[in-house]
C-alpha cells in the first residue's frame, strides 16, 4: 500500500482534559515516514470535554479532525469506540488509521479491524516507506529478538498500532488545525459484554507501559516490605515501581507490575533494575528503555550486559543513597 499524499487518520488519545503525549508520537512517526500525506485526526469524547480537547488539538498540526461526541464515551467499551471510529473511516476513507498501542486503544483497533475487514498490524515500533513507495511497519517478534518489516497486501487501507514511548516526539511547526467536523453517531449498546465494576488500584498511579521512569525490583529485594526502598526512590524521581516475575510469583507485587515477556513491555526513559538478574524473559520487556541502570551485587549478572550504567553493590545501600542524590539534583 502506498501512502503518498493520501489521508492518514490519527486516533487522538486523551485523558479527558488533555491530549496524551502518545498522540504526538503517532504524528511524528507518520510524518517521518510519509511527509506528504495528509494528516487527519479522530477524537472521541463526551460533549463536556470537547472544547478543552479541541483547543489542545490545535497544537497538533492536523489538517482536519473528526469529532465524535457522545455521553457513552465516559465508559470505555471497545465495541462502542470501534464503531465510532468505523463511522469516521467511512467518511474520511483514510489509507491508514493509526492508534497508540495502549491497553484500550489497541483493543479498539483490533475490534475495528474485525468489524471493517481492514488489515491490522499490531504493536509497531517504527514506520517506514520503502523505495518502491510501500508503507512498512516494523514489529518486534520472538520476544524482541527479531524485527519483522510488514506491509499491507492487496489492501485499500489498513490499521496500525504504535508502541508508546518508542518514538521521540519532534516539536512540529505548529500550523494550527483549521477544521473540525462533527460526525453523528449512535452508540452501540453491547448486551453481550457488560462491565459491572472497575476496581481502581489506588497504588497504581501511572500505567507501567506509559511510565517515563520505572524502578523495578526482583528476587533480590527479598520481601514485600522491602519494596518500600524502591517505592521511596520512585517517589523521589516521579517514577513507578515494576517487578520481575520472581518478585510477582513470590507475592510481593501484583501481576500488573510485572515487566517482561509474560508481563508488560515497557519503554521508559529510565529503567532502574534492582536485584534483577536479567533473564531473557525479563529483558525483552525493558530492553528498549532509553537508559537502563542496573544495581546488583553479582558483577556477573546478565543485567549488566544490557545496562547503560551499573553499580555492583547491595541494593539496600545503593538505592536509598541514589534516591537522596537524585533528589538533590532534581531540587537543584
Amino acid at each position: 500500500m502506498k501512502l503518498d499524499s493520501k489521508t492518514i487518520l490519527i486516533y487522538v488519545e486523551h485523558s479527558g482534559s488533555k491530549v496524551k503525549k502518545n498522540t504526538s508520537e503517532l504524528i511524528t512517526a507518520v510524518k517521518k515516514a510519509a511527509p506528504s500525506a495528509e494528516l487527519t485526526g479522530v477524537l472521541l469524547c463526551v460533549p463536556a470535554e470537547r472544547a478543552k480537547l479541541c483547543s489542545d488539538i490545535e497544537k497538533l498540526n492536523l489538517k482536519k479532525v473528526y469529532v465524535v461526541e457522545n455521553e457513552s464515551f465516559s465508559i470505555f467499551s471497545k465495541e462502542n469506540f470501534a464503531s465510532a471510529v468505523k463511522a469516521v473511516i467511512e467518511k474520511a476513507a483514510p489509507a491508514l488509521t493509526v492508534f497508540s498501542h495502549t491497553t484500550n486503544s489497541s483493543e479498539t483497533a483490533k475490534v475495528l479491524a474485525s468489524r471493517t475487514q481492514l488489515a491490522i498490524i499490531c504493536d509497531a515500533i517504527n514506520f517506514a516507506v520503502y523505495e518502491d513507495g510501500e508503507f512498512v511497519a516494523v514489529h518486534p517478534m520472538y520476544a524482541g529478538k527479531i524485527r519483522a518489516h510488514i506491509k499491507f497486501e492487496n489492501q485499500p487501507g489498513g490499521i496500525v498500532t504504535l508502541r508508546p514511548n518508542v518514538v521521540e516526539v519532534c516539536e512540529t511547526a505548529s500550523g494550527a488545525c483549521s477544521s473540525f467536523e462533527t460526525v453523528p453517531f449512535t452508540p452501540v449498546s453491547n448486551d453481550a459484554v457488560k462491565i459491572i465494576n472497575v476496581i481502581a488500584d489506588a497504588s497504581k498511579k501511572i500505567d507501567l507501559s506509559e511510565a517515563d521512569i520505572i524502578v523495578a525490583g526482583g528476587r533480590g529485594v527479598g520481601s514485600k516490605e522491602n519494596f518500600k526502598v524502591l517505592e521511596d526512590l520512585a517517589a523521589a524521581i516521579n517514577g513507578v515501581v515494576g517487578a520481575s516475575r520472581a518478585a510477582v510469583d513470590a507475592g510481593w507485587r501484583e501481576h500488573h507490575d510485572q515487566v517482561g515477556q509474560t508481563g508488560k513491555i515497557v519503554n521508559p526513559k529510565i529503567y532502574i533494575a534492582c536485584g534483577i538478574s536479567g533473564a531473557i524473559q525479563h529483558t525483552v520487556g525493558m530492553q528498549t528503555a532509553k537508559c537502563i541502570i542496573a544495581i546488583n551485587k553479582d558483577p556477573e549478572a546478565n543485567i549488566f550486559k544490557i545496562a547503560d550504567y551499573g553499580i555492583v553493590g547491595d541494593l539496600f545501600q545503593v538505592v536509598p543513597e541514589l534516591a537522596s542524590e537524585l533528589k538533590k539534583l532534581i531540587n537543584g
Binding site: M141, H149, E153, Q155, G158, K305, D308
Partner: peptide, 16 residues
C-alpha cells in the same frame, strides 16, 4: 492481508 517483507535483528545495545 499483510505480508512480511523481511526480517532483521535489532541493533545491539552498546555495552554500558
Amino acid at each position: 492481508k499483510i505480508k512480511i517483507v523481511k526480517l532483521s535483528t535489532p541493533p545491539p545495545r552498546p555495552a554500558g
